[in-house]
Design a protein around this nucleic acid. Sequence first.
DNA 1: CACCCGATTATCT
DNA 2: GATAATCGGGTGT
Length: 216
Amino acid sequence: MTKSIIVEFSLSDVLPRSFYDRSPLIVGREIIGKKLIRTFENGKELSGTIVEAEAYGGNRDPASHSFRGKTRRNEVMFGEAGHAYVYFTYGFHYCLNFVTSSKFGKASAILIRAAEPLTGINFMERQRKTTLITQLASGPGKLCQAFGIDKSQNGIDITRTDSAIRVESSDLNLRVSTSKRIGIRVAIDRRWRFFSTSSPHVSGGPSSKVRGIRES
DNA sequence: CACCCGATTATCT
DNA sequence: GATAATCGGGTGT
């Protein structure tokens, strides 16, 4: 009984599955400003404010991994909303996604592209081999490196309070801008990238101007 | 089994 | 602006 009371009145603000089980366009916008938390088996905890995300959606979206159907790599995208889809790319980097509604073209997800570090910054600096705060998690590959995320987290349920990766609500109410998605060659007309307006922690920040990213 | 290429990043000119 | 680093997924033979 005591246990159930503790659960009922838990102070956890972990976002529930219903948050993710919606269109990636809605989830992508609303997740900006939320708190990303990464915990390790030794109790170590890292956190940051999500400041950039992109929507990818099933058979409506030729830029999505799920566009050509289910494969061993993308099968998590075809499963339940609220799970992590982590993939390896360019021989170097991991990218973190959260599965969203299956009603949006069979399989959809949002790519978590950047976060503003809050706690565990020393750990992130060691992971990233830099102390420049705006370089720690200002890109999908950088974010995974800073937060120690790799394929071993692929498929985990991020709505559990004890999950190695989870997202909590926040009092922040950041202004959100949109733009075309970055790094894709098809469906480049859609403005499915969402980011905190003027945040120095988004990709295309200080040192990435060379890539010519425009956010209009 | 060979081939192509990617939801990236760091570093060079 | 251009390219190297580096590897596994996906496709076609």
